[in-house]
Design a protein around this nucleic acid. Structure first.
Length: 581
DNA sequence: GCCGTTTTCGGCCCGACTGTTTTCAGTCG
């Protein structure tokens, strides 16, 4: 898929133009970049089928960006971009990941100190050269160092949600090769970890040579790290490493278990085997005979291995050695929520604020995805940058929703659009919408978008005050983190969970790849405290509903059952469950 | 550079916060 590469280039073009104070164009390139990054189809295919005309039909792509996509597809380069880069040869991709640095500051650092990359930035900051620059000071220098430190901590981890289409593509192509009888994506992806370090692929085949040849010569390979008979590894242009293992049928289950991990889970599992006088490795489960010989007992499937160890099957999401081995041996594992269990989505944005599509388009996309209801949760006026709704517009929106629901009913479609809001929590914990409006909505949800640097005590009190409003039902993305970009604000989630229990407030599991908030550990805390959760896509585009799977994966990692999640219920029961006593 | 229309030019979310300044540029969402 060329999408990610082109999206990245457009993003950088936008930033280069920003440096030059060019008006409006930066936003246009940025918008094009975002659109391309979230497409579910390949730009190369679009171009092949319909040429440049078809490209221009994609919203946000026009004559100029269309031509540049064509140029990239034909030549692998975009001249305009190459020239910008020559003029200001800085590592924008990495420098802009440092919080507080935007195009203008990066330009100043380059012009005045010739800083081109993170290393030079760090050296300059450590040498105290930044604080004396015009427009910078001691605080900026300190923040630069902090930003670099943050980057180092999150280095090498990727967000699965943003790589899934590229991985899916590799998977589909490998499956087409003759002799590939089974394929699984294993490792942290199979365990549904929120960030992944690399991609591990396991294949069952008797003939690995053509597989390895194909794998190492894919278009998106930057560098071949290893190529052998059973194992190959490549670095993709997108920066992630992919490992491939090929095994035979007899060992497939054992290899699946071994390469899925986690390491800690595997160690614990092997200890159980030893206790039974057995040995477990990636080729199978073996009984050690009196004469010292090893007799193969199981290995074709994971189920065989677990049952021969006297255990229930353990879902990949639970394999972190956090107590799952003991429960599986006692046959007491919880029955986790399943993929496909969600009946609705309680956070959906539309083009009334910062979403891409109309209410009707989002509803149709949700219907197509298999949902029975969605809640429309556009931002409120405090979030001016999203064109947040004021009292007048939100009332207009409820009328529009009534109209659409009537239409759906008339057409005999079993689908309901709920009136809702993502109401901003203001400075003092009051809400950005008066009670007389809130009480007219089906669901009231709240979230924090400002004052991220309050003390833990202040932030927690602020949120609790908001939760105390009698009309509030759900607290969205409770920690506010953006993976790889921003740490959570200081807040005591255990205290919020306790208060949510007391007040009957639902906490959200936000499924956006860079949010995934609550995380698995807090989800587990909610499950244990009996606090209900909702799993929402926070969709801003018709293509975002599949993110719900990320949220379900996370919920499973947090040991959540179907009954812990309110939007597994049909719409009537779900709404009833929200009623506060 | 894109979009939409009162169609082929004129408009393009805007307010808060930070850290620098001493009135505001840059960044963020």
């Amino acid at each position: 898929m060329v999408n990610q590469i082109i999206a990245e280039i457009f993003q950088e073009i936008g930033e280069y133009l920003d440096m030059q104070d060019v008006p409006f164009k930066p936003r246009a390139y940025e918008k094009a970049s975002e659109t391309i990054a979230s497409l579910s189809f390949d730009l190369g295919d679009v171009y092949k089928k319909g040429g440049i005309k078809a490209l221009e039909e994609i919203p946000g792509i026009g004559v100029s960006t269309g031509e540049k996509i064509e140029e990239y597809l034909k030549t692998g380069k975009i001249k305009f971009y190459e020239e910008l880069k020559k003029k200001t040869p800085v590592d924008l991709t990495n420098l802009r990941r440092v919080g507080g640095l935007g195009p203008k500051k990066i330009k100043a650092l380059y012009k005045k100190l010739n800083i081109k990359n993170l290393e030079e930035l760090e050296n300059a900051a450590k040498a105290g050269k930044i604080k004396s620059l015009e427009g910078f000071g001691a605080k900026s220098e300190e923040n630069v160092l902090k930003g670099i430190e943050f980057l180092k901590r999150s280095k090498g981890r990727f967000l699965y949600g943003y790589l899934s289409s590229e991985i899916k593509n590799i998977e589909n192509n490998l499956k087409k090769i003759k002799g590939v009888t089974r394929l699984d994506i294993v490792g942290s992806i199979r365990r549904r970890k929120e960030t992944i370090g690399d991609v591990d692929i396991l294949i069952e085949s008797k003939n690995s040579a053509p597989i390895m040849d194909f794998f190492t010569s894919m278009d998106n390979v930057l560098q071949i790290l290893a190529k052998g008979e059973t194992k190959s590894a490549v670095l993709l242009k997108s920066g992630i490493q992919v490992d491939l293992r090929v095994v035979d049928k007899k060992s497939y289950g054992a290899a699946l278990s071994y390469f899925t991990g986690s390491k800690d889970h595997n160690v614990a599992l092997r200890k159980v085997a030893i206790g039974y006088g057995m040995k477990l490795n990636e080729y199978g489960l073996y009984k050690i005979l009196d004469n010292g010989e090893e007799k193969y007992i199981a290995g074709e499937t994971e189920e065989d291995i677990y049952s021969n160890l006297g255990m229930q099957y353990i879902s990949p999401e639970l394999r972190e050695n956090r107590g799952e081995i003991e429960l599986a041996r006692a046959k007491k594992l919880p029955k986790l929520i399943n993929y496909g269990d969600l009946k609705g989505d309680l956070q959906v944005q539309t083009n009334w604020t910062d979403g891409d599509a109309s209410i009707e388009e989002m509803a149709n996309a949700a219907i197509k995805y298999g949902l029975e209801y969605i809640a429309i949760t556009d931002h409120t006026k405090r979030l001016a940058m999203t064109n947040g709704l004021n009292e007048k517009r939100i009332l207009e929106q409820t009328k529009e929703i009534d109209k659409l629901n009537k239409k759906l009913e008339k057409e005999g479609v079993n689908f309901k659009i709920l009136k809702s809001t993502e109401c901003d929590i203001l400075e003092d914990g009051s809400l950005d919408m008066p009670d007389e409006i809130l009480k007219q909505l089906d669901i009231v949800s709240i979230s924090v978008h400002s004052l991220f640097n309050l003390s833990e005590k202040e932030q927690t009190e602020r949120i609790k005050k908001a939760m105390n409003n009698p009309y509030v039902n759900i607290f969205f993305h409770p920690t506010g983190r953006r993976l790889g970009k921003r740490d959570p604000y200081a807040v005591s989630i255990p205290e919020i969970i306790k208060y949510a229990k007391e007040k009957g407030i639902v906490l959200e599991i936000n499924s956006q790849p860079e949010r995934l908030d609550l995380n698995d550990e807090y989800i587990k805390m909610c499950v244990e405290s009996g606090v209900k959760m909702s799993i929402d896509s926070d969709a801003h585009s018709v293509s975002h509903f599949p993110y719900l799977d990320l949220g379900i994966g996370l919920a499973r990692r947090g040991w959540a059952k179907k009954e812990d999640i309110i939007n597994t219920l049909p719409v009537g029961e779900m709404l009833k469950s929200l009623k506060r006593s």
